[in-house]
Simulated scan of single mutants.
Amino acid sequence: MPPRSAVTGRSTDPRRRFAEELRLLRTHRGESLRQLGKALGWDASLFGKMERGQTIGSPEVAEALDQHYGTPGLLLALWELAAADPTQFKERYRRYMTLEREAVSLWHFGVSTVHGLLQTDDYASAVLEVGGTKGEELTRQIEARIGRRELLMGEDAPPFRTILSEAVLHDARPWRKQLEYLVEASERANVILHVLPHGSGPHSLVSTDVIFLRLSNGLAVAYTENAHHGELIEETGAVERLQRAYDSVRDRALSPDESRKFVMRMLEEVPCEPST
């Protein structure tokens, strides 16, 4: 089949447009979802969800589909448009929040910020303002994050492991209370803190924040986020690949005891009152 160009006269919604093109390409070739999954090495259910608009998958999946269908760059471009759509980001994030509340354990790696479950009010305000949140919406989101912290408190709180790049801690230094809160949280039985120090070597999560949620049915999902978009990943193979990358980062990080001492040493170097 010769390479196809984008079909005109179809949906202008980025996510629907991507799903429609995927479905059209597969049916034009006469493949079943099972055959497609077998050919590319991903679960057939992933492609079904992508064609129904329930997920957009990952850029790696879009590239593999481009190669499979002989449409170089087309599907990846449509994927990027869908990923950049702010309404879709909100939709994915809402689903992530629902799963976060249901998770029986959580593993996080932060390359840019402290996770929302461990953020203080002032730090959360600064992070949200940088992202363009203002006014009443800023107040509402800060209150929401304060409420989220309760997830990690109490006798039934799920285990939470966070690995923070050293750069995250340096960026948090103007908010002394944020560093103090990390030390306090790490003393809880269900919270484990690791620090990934400078000079720990290259790794495949260098530009990506990621959190894994283990659900009560034994399955895990991942949510990745960078400066441009966030993506909820539910396909088993993709989650496992991210998990291997996370394990590699964890192997390079300091132990929990060393990490707590690391943050406490940083506290000795910052003012007793936060910068204004």
Rank of each mutant, 00 (worst) to 15 (best):
L267Y: 06
V61C: 12
R244Q: 07
I142T: 09
V183E: 03
T98K: 15
L182K: 04
V263Y: 06
V263N: 05
R23W: 06
L164R: 07
T224W: 01
R149F: 03
E91K: 15
G199I: 00
S186V: 07
Y181K: 12
D66T: 06
H28A: 15
L128V: 03
R149S: 05
D171E: 15
R250T: 13
L76F: 05
D122N: 09
G110H: 03
R244I: 13
R252F: 01
R214S: 14
P14Y: 00
D257L: 08
M50C: 13
H203K: 00
P86G: 01
I233G: 10
Q88F: 07
T236R: 13
R244C: 06
K49C: 08
E102C: 00
Y223V: 01
L78G: 03
T162D: 03
E91G: 10
H108T: 09
L169I: 10
S125I: 03
S216L: 15
S112H: 14
S125A: 15
G135A: 09
L193A: 08
G237T: 14
L36K: 03
T55K: 03
T224Q: 12
A19Y: 01
F18V: 01
S112K: 09
A185T: 05
R145A: 13
V183K: 04
E187T: 10
A227V: 14
N190Y: 00
T87K: 12
D13K: 08
P271L: 06
F47A: 02
R92G: 12
E166N: 10
A124E: 01
G110W: 05
K134C: 07
I192S: 11
G110D: 08
G110A: 11
R244L: 11
M50G: 00
A227C: 08
G131C: 08
I163M: 00
L99G: 02
T71R: 05
S165I: 02
S248T: 07
V249D: 00
H170Q: 11
V7W: 02
S105F: 01
S186D: 02
L46V: 05
E150C: 10
R148A: 11
E51D: 05
P72K: 01
W42N: 14
M266L: 15
G199H: 09
M1A: 14
D171F: 06
R188K: 15
E258A: 01
G116Q: 01
K261Y: 13
R265K: 11
E31N: 12
D66F: 09
W107V: 14
L242D: 09
M153T: 10
R4T: 08
L118N: 09
L78T: 07
H28D: 15
F160D: 06
D122Y: 06
D85N: 10
G132M: 10
L99C: 00
E100H: 07
H170V: 14
G237A: 11
A126C: 12
Y123K: 00
R15M: 12
L138T: 02
R244A: 11
S255H: 01
L138H: 07
K177D: 15
L118T: 02
G201M: 08
E137Y: 08
E240T: 09
L205E: 04
R241W: 00
